[in-house]
């Protein structure tokens, strides 16, 4: 209760806040403001107020791309969560002193360039790629389905890219679990599977939610992976935004699309934050 404790060092946040405001918040607001102006006849912007751009976003043509992006992002996030949770579970079950090394290997791909890692998938997936060669080497002579430039390739690329996030997000609550809690469930008559379903899983939902939202949000706005692995069509909303700004020269519409995208992300992130705050009241460890 001393006055010294009450004085929180808020001023330490000033540089970060200033930086974010100047180079993130202000530019974003400027771009978003463009959504309310009319597109010039030869590109550029006519400063006349209009809601046309926002109306166009809900046009079935674009809404469909939105839904498709959400579908791909959701699928990628779902797969990443299942795969990542399993990996995190295995790591958390290892002896304590081995865990840091395993986590290091899990996030190792982050230390190389995102573009290079995505190009690597082209090498793996293309018609004369490593995977096809592998099938041939095992003696399979039949027709192989197109792998590169498909939705599947995009999902693979997204899962691959964001998996380390999910592993870290799921590992945090898993490693904090008191092992005696799972033992207590086993002792009270539950099988290993029931223990997982009724005790371990519910107690680690915050990590799963964080991982899912993370992958979803990063995937739905991603434009590099769909451009490289999806074959350069307007596969996802990120590519559409990219095209409005850089090729179609329709900045107001690009801004309107971005606004919709940011709104979706904000809703999800806020919901996740609230949910995990509520869950954190239950804690991971029984103190």
């Amino acid at each position: 209760m001393s006055p010294v404790k009450d004085r929180k060092p808020l001023y330490l946040m000033t540089p970060a806040l200033a930086w974010l405001t100047a180079f993130m918040v202000v530019p974003c607001l400027l771009i978003l403001a463009l959504a309310f102006f009319r597109r010039g006849i030869y590109g550029g912007i006519e400063y006349v107020f209009t809601l046309e751009n926002l109306a166009m976003v809900v046009d079935p043509l674009y809404a469909r791309i939105f839904l498709k992006s959400a579908g791909i992002a959701g699928l990628a996030a779902g797969i990443a969560v299942v795969v990542g949770y399993a990996a995190a579970y295995a790591i958390a079950a290892m002896p304590r002193h081995r865990q840091p090394a395993l986590l290091f290997f899990a996030v190792l791909p982050f230390w190389s360039n995102y573009l290079i890692r995505t190009y690597a998938w082209i090498v793996l997936l293309n018609r004369e790629g490593l995977i096809v060669h592998l099938f041939r080497w095992f003696g399979y002579e039949g027709e192989l389905p197109q792998m590169l430039y498909t939705e599947t390739a995009v999902v693979i690329g997204l899962v691959y890219n964001y998996l380390p996030f999910v592993i870290l997000a799921c590992y945090a609550p898993l490693s904090r679990l008191n092992p005696e809690v799972a033992e207590a469930s086993h002792d009270l008559g539950a099988s290993q599977w029931t223990t997982f379903r009724r005790i371990t899983l519910p107690m680690t939902v915050p990590g799963i939610a964080a991982g899912f939202v993370f992958v979803f949000v990063l995937s739905i706005g991603n434009f590099v992976t769909p451009a490289l692995l999806g074959g350069g069509q307007f596969q996802m909303i990120g590519n559409l935004v990219y095209a409005q700004f850089l090729t179609a020269n329709d900045w107001p519409f690009g801004a309107a699309l971005s606004m919709a995208l940011i709104a979706v992300m904000m809703v999800l992130l806020t919901a996740q934050t609230f949910a995990s705050e509520r869950a954190s009241g239950q804690g991971g460890r029984d103190a």
């Binding site: 008191n178 005696e180 809690v181 033992e183 207590a184 469930s185 005790i199 519910p202 107690m203 239950q282 804690g283 991971g284 460890r285 029984d286």
Partner: peptide, 9 residues
């Protein structure tokens, strides 16, 4: 259990 190991949820 010594830690009681109650189910927190």
């Amino acid at each position: 259990f010594q830690s009681y190991a109650l189910f927190p949820h």
